[in-house]
């Protein structure tokens, strides 16, 4: 410190933090975290593994050159999107817990708040940052999905003309599917945000976030068992109110059924109506898309209410 000079020439005029400024600061911090980059790359890992597995399957060429190539490719893309949905969820849990929890854990939240930034304003900026950061991998994943599928399909079939067989509803169905991924992403971010704000620590936030979906997926199975033992439909009905199963099955209720041509044992083909690809536990009772969307919205509102309410009410003791 000894040789320094102090001048007010370069000192800023009275500053006032704006929402955009807070957003800029949060963005800056998140991009400087290795976790952001490593997590985004790792979350895409299962898709190339799936495609490698596909290429190694002897029947793939037959499927691509057969009369049901379009349906087959449609399914491949939807499976990739399902993997994207599940694994981007893990990435978003880690990112949300890190962006919100690290400030609590390292006490850096007081640097920001003691400069006049509001607690709710800061949380809102963090959530917008997380959503923005989540969209970058999602768009990248979609581009990679299409490029890899195109490359693998062309290589396996020996021609890119196999893609001409894609059903006419392919793009509209795909965008609807992407919409369900976005809904799932928002619900995951808000759930992880609520968990982190409640515990005000990264460990608590991560533990709750990681346990939440496995818990209600497993809980779904228990409900089925209880319903079986008690012969009471009530228990099975509860499964339609659990967030995990609702998000898992959302593509199947939002994306229209598509007609798929499948080979028969006799060597012929037949057409069937197929729902979109899903992964994980599903509700045991049928409801329409409105029920799904309303229930997911309610969950999101509860999570957001918890996160913002507690942030607004509680003193910062870190």
């Amino acid at each position: 410190m000894a040789s320094a000079t102090l001048t007010t020439a370069s000192a800023p005029e009275t500053l006032k933090p704006s929402f955009l400024g807070v957003l800029r600061g949060e963005w800056f911090k998140a991009l400087h975290q290795r976790l952001t980059w490593i997590g985004a790359v790792l979350a895409y890992g299962p898709v190339p593994v799936y495609l490698l597995f596909l290429v190694a399957t002897p029947s793939v060429k037959t499927a691509l050159l057969g009369s049901y190539a379009g349906s087959y490719l449609n399914t491949v893309v939807q499976r990739e999107l399902t993997l994207n949905r599940v694994f981007i969820g893990f990435f978003l849990m880690a990112l949300t817990v890190s962006v919100i929890g690290m400030d609590y854990q390292q006490g850096t939240i007081r640097i920001v708040l003691s400069r006049g930034v509001g607690r709710v304003q800061l949380l809102a900026a963090k959530l917008v940052t997380i959503l923005g950061l989540a969209l970058i991998p999602l768009v990248s994943y979609l581009l990679l999905d299409f490029l890899l599928t195109y490359g693998v399909g062309t290589a396996a079939a020996g021609t890119s003309r196999v893609f001409n067989a894609l059903p006419t509803s392919f793009w509209s169905d795909t965008w609807l599917y992407v919409g369900t991924i976005l809904i799932s992403m928002v619900a995951t971010i808000l759930m992880a945000a609520a968990a982190t704000v409640i515990g005000r620590s990264m460990q608590f936030g991560m533990a709750v976030a990681l346990l939440f979906f496995p818990a209600d997926n497993i809980g779904n199975t228990f409900l089925a068992l209880i319903a079986g033992f008690t012969h009471q439909q009530f228990w099975a009905n509860i499964s339609a109110y659990l967030l995990g199963p609702l998000l898992n099955s959302l593509p199947a209720v939002l994306v229209p059924l598509h007609t798929m041509t499948v080979p028969t044992k006799e060597g012929g083909v037949r057409t069937v109506q197929v729902a979109a690809e899903t992964l994980g536990a599903s509700p045991f009772v049928s409801y329409d898309a409105t029920h799904y969307l309303v229930m997911i919205l309610l969950y999101c509102l509860v999570f957001a209410g918890l996160a913002f309410g507690l942030t607004w009410r509680r003193d910062v003791l870190e």
Partner: peptide
């Protein structure tokens, strides 16, 4: 303010810590 122990982002450089706060405040050259 500097309250109790300095609260810093350990994964960033000293300069980047200042840039992060500067970004929030705005107008810090």
């Amino acid at each position: 303010a500097l309250i109790e122990q300095p609260a810093l982002h350990l994964y960033m450089s000293g300069r980047d810590n200042l840039r992060a706060v500067g970004a929030i405040l705005g107008g810090v050259s």
